[in-house]
Design a protein around this nucleic acid. Structure first.
Lengths: 221, 221
DNA sequence: TGTTTACTCCCCCGAAAAGGGGATTGGAGA
DNA sequence: TCTCCAATCCCCTTTTCGGGGGAGTAAACA
């Protein structure tokens, strides 16, 4: 079950294999930063750069990197989609999510999908390099406050898919009746959903629910 | 009124002065990316790196760079604050805002405060380098869609400070009466504010107003 | 100077939301 | 199997919202 069972596709020095890394981020400046940082490490090498999700999957199939640094917010195919596709092919792939936002929902979905690490982009470089080595070694790597958020998210009871549908329409200013017509159920049903949403988010108005849900990245605005 | 009236503090080659650049961003990876990218340009040099707003102002005072690449979201002192402080000292300073978000309000406030350029972090490297040269040369540099947003924002009529106060409290789920008590005015007054907020944001419910305001970065969630 | 604009306050009224209760179905898990 | 829970629907009441109108003050701007 070693990650390197498929001989790493590093073109040189077969006697000193380096950790092959694939970078997937739509921000070219950030990609450059990662390439540059990793370039300082003798035991690592960047084997590919993708600027969107589809490219990331393609490059992964070609290069079979040891570790993937993945942004969640990307065009074409988002990070969670990338994780799912890649792990459908090889569930041992080491994926580190590297993102700006720390909305609960993003973390949760990434970890659910099989990410082994989750870092915020403001990590100092040592922590980043350290995480790559640890995830490559098979460890799971989560900053403390993110682990806490995960725990909290599990404690708090999850908001169901249906409730998120309702939340999205709520954020568009729709009334219960309007939401009902969109979702083909009665306004009363929506009312019940709204009540349970309030309970789960611990809020007491639609406006607050929208603010809270956006903050938790349950919905995108 | 030349930007280089204060002889650039580049330590070498006085006969071939390079554009001195200060980078201010709390994401170390991104800073590294910028340093690396700028390193490829013969006519540019990074004279300092700041990881928060206060550092940025301090470094600016020491180094007097020709151009500043500035993130708006930073700890200690935010980007707009940095712009204001620096331009209070020298209103000719060339500042390029480089940020992830394109909420109308951020752009507006940065430009108001005196930024000469505004780039999103997903710009290709050529565009970034080009913008640095152009802003150094005295031009103002805004991507088309950002310029459009600015125009739209001016057309749409600005949301007043008071209205933003109301919006913030609205996002906390407070009723008109509750908002009134917090702001020491009557519920009827709040109602008037809410009405004009709806008109300005072109929405028709509190939930939608909160979503819209967050999207425009009028309020932070 | 006059005009605009932000902020404050008031009226009315119908529709919607908030908060409480209960009930049924069907599926997932103990 | 039985229990839990999501999802659906219904009842009730009180409060808030949203849309309509008008109006006064003070400050800023032309």
């Amino acid at each position: 079950m070693s990650a390197a069972k498929k001989t790493p596709k590093v073109k040189d020095t077969p006697k000193n294999p380096r950790i092959g890394i694939l970078i997937a981020d739509d921000h070219s400046v950030l990609r450059q930063g990662l390439v540059s940082l990793i370039g300082f490490e003798a035991d690592m090498i960047v084997v590919g750069e993708a600027s969107n999700g589809r490219e990331a999957v393609d490059l992964w199939r070609q290069q079979r990197p040891d570790v993937i640094l993945l942004d969640l917010r990307m065009p074409e195919l988002d990070g969670v989609g990338v994780i799912k596709q890649i792990r459908a092919d090889d569930e041992n792939t080491r994926i580190i999510v590297l993102t700006t936002f720390d909305g609960d929902e993003d973390i949760y979905r990434a970890i659910q999908a099989g990410a082994k690490g989750y870092l915020l982009k403001d990590v100092p470089r040592e922590a980043l390099i350290d995480s790559i080595r640890r995830v490559y070694a098979g460890e799971t790597c989560l900053p403390v406050h993110l682990a806490n958020k995960l725990a909290e998210r599990i404690r708090g009871g999850s908001v169901s898919e249906r409730e998120i549908d309702v939340l999205k329409l709520m954020a568009q200013g729709k009334s219960n009746k309007e939401i009902g017509s969109v979702l083909f159920v009665s306004a009363g049903t929506i009312k019940s959903h709204v009540k349970s949403i309030f309970a789960k988010l611990n809020v007491n108005s639609r406006a607050e629910a929208v603010a809270n849900a956006a903050h938790r990245a349950l919905i995108q605005l």
